[in-house]
Amino acid sequence: MKKNLHQRGAQAPLVGSKATVKIDKLAVGGAGVARHEGLVVFVPLAAPDDELLVEFTLVKKNFSEARILEIIKPGPARRTPPCPVALVCGGCNWQQISEEEQRRQKEQIVLETIQKFNRGLEFEYLPIQASPRSLRYRNRIQPKYANGRFGFFARNSHEIVAIEDCPITETALTDKFSEVKQWLQSQKKSGLQKLEMYISEDDSVRYGLISEEDDGVGFSQVNRFQNVDLIRTALDWASGEEYRHIWDLYSGAGNFTFPFAERWTSAPITGVELNPKLVKRGQAKSRDSRIQFVESDVESFLKKTKPQSQDLVILDPPRAGASEYIMQALLEARPKKIIYISCHPVSLARDLQWFFKKAQELNIKASLRRVQAFEMFPQTDHVETVVELRVDS
């Protein structure tokens, strides 16, 4: 007898049982979303409007997960992936979907996620910004090597999928694959080897092994073509104002620090970054006495230093987002404007919720002026988002 596993009282499928489902949309994390007997079903590697025969691999109280056994009727956006190993490699999870539909789904995911966490919040929602390249855009990758196999981990596995090419990676890197494999073989190291390949600022290709102690060059935007538009948008949204001081929180090596310093030539600018490698890179690049890089986590920094009402704050946290303390500290500081660049819709929506909850508690007038998603990572579910926050000082 099937056991009732969820609130609506429908009979949940047991793990290993099969069902026919239709995909309604895609979710944060990339899986297709369907419903079966009142239960939400997440199906990896699905496409919108697919009709699928699936096998349930996980059943919880309110949701389940399933794998595709058969594509009964493909949705109109389903296509043959550009990469021959896309459906097994763990690198890309949306190559089976047309680029136009990928953008449409990301635009919808960002909007719905923000609205879910922030009921009734009004803002201008701009169309998603397409990437200049949908393939050959990555300038940094971290392949793996073991027992003569060079490539990336398979999906949900540490088994290496051997590759000769990677269609989302710039050719300057893929052209070096043979050379890198020969170099790895010459090292004669046993076990799994992790390495990093990247295009440096002088356009040379560099590569080397990474470890738990050495995590490589640190964070950088992997799509330099779209990064140009991302920076331009952040600059444009901050324009029309003069600022006493500019604070670039989670600054990295200065992706936003230096363009903002060039636009606002009289304001001092402080980059706050925890990774010492990135701080040193930013300091080495700087030739302007107005620019300062501080090695610190952002929360600790804000406990000692507060932006002022005539300041601009740029906030570009990692996927985990900022913290409740950071969002509330920024709200209470009441800077003239906050430009928040996010790489995960859920952490963004949660951070906005913290921000506006505190605004309501303190009766501070704050607004979310505009939001725009950016296609920074084509062929995957990842999406970048830029938002503009204003606080009435």
Rank of each mutant, 00 (worst) to 15 (best):
R149E: 11
W94H: 04
P132A: 11
L69Q: 01
G32S: 03
V85K: 14
N147F: 11
G91C: 12
F123V: 05
R78A: 10
N118C: 08
V33P: 00
F42S: 05
V15C: 13
V59F: 03
R149G: 09
A27S: 13
K60Q: 15
L111M: 06
E65I: 02
A47K: 03
Y145S: 04
S17D: 09
R133M: 04
C92H: 05
A34P: 00
L53M: 04
S98R: 06
L135M: 08
P82C: 12
P84H: 11
A46F: 02
I109S: 06
L14A: 11
Y125W: 06
S98H: 03
T80Y: 03
G29I: 02
E37K: 07
C83M: 10
A27N: 06
N62T: 13
G38A: 06
G30P: 06
N139G: 11
R138P: 02
E122H: 10
G16F: 06
N139Q: 13
R78D: 14
L52M: 02
G29K: 01
Q105P: 03
P74V: 15
A130K: 11
I71K: 13
S64C: 13
G151L: 09
G90P: 10
T113Q: 08
W94P: 03
K144N: 10
R35A: 03
I72W: 02
Q105T: 08
H36W: 09
P48G: 05
P132H: 11
F42E: 04
R79Q: 15
E112Q: 06
E122Q: 15
L58Q: 15
L53S: 11
C92K: 04
K60Y: 11
V40T: 11
L69S: 00
R138K: 12
A34Q: 00
K106D: 01
R140P: 06
A19E: 01
L14I: 06
I109Y: 02
A130H: 09
G75Q: 04
R136W: 07
F117D: 00
V40H: 01
T20R: 09
G38I: 08
N118F: 12
P74W: 13
V21R: 00
G16Y: 06
R78I: 12
T113Y: 01
I128D: 00
R103K: 08
P82G: 11
N118S: 08
P76S: 13
T113N: 05
Q115G: 03
